[in-house]
């Protein structure tokens, strides 16, 4: 996982979307709204939305990303997941 060393996020660990988060598809990707924190996030890639929807079915964040995107896009998506972990949209699975 070279290049993706982010505090509090381990690409090898399982994660899931917080159950209080709703996703709404949009042409640019999706809106994510957290009913608990009232935080709104803009997900600017349909692939990232797909990763979020399948996240909890995979044994690791990296496996979920790899099931959706090719290797060159992997790091970008892991960084996006790390940001969503920091904002508590995504939680350890």
């Amino acid at each position: 996982m070279r290049g993706v060393l982010i505090a509090d996020f381990d690409p090898a660990a399982p994660y899931r979307l917080d159950p209080r988060v709703a996703l709404r598809d949009e042409p640019f990707g999706a809106l994510a709204y957290h009913y608990g924190s009232r935080r709104l996030s803009f997900l600017r890639s349909p692939e990232l939305v797909e990763v979020l929807r399948c996240l909890e079915r995979h044994t690791s964040a990296a496996a979920a990303v790899d099931s959706v995107v090719a290797l060159p896009d992997r790091e970008r998506h892991l960084r996006a997941l790390a940001a969503l972990v920091r904002s508590e949209m995504v939680v350890p699975g």
Partner: peptide
């Protein structure tokens, strides 16, 4: 916020955010 996202929002969404 990226210019592309600003543009997408300025074009309007299919439903309001709130």
């Amino acid at each position: 916020m990226s210019a592309a996202l600003v543009e997408a929002l300025e074009r309007g969404l299919d439903a309001p955010i709130c």
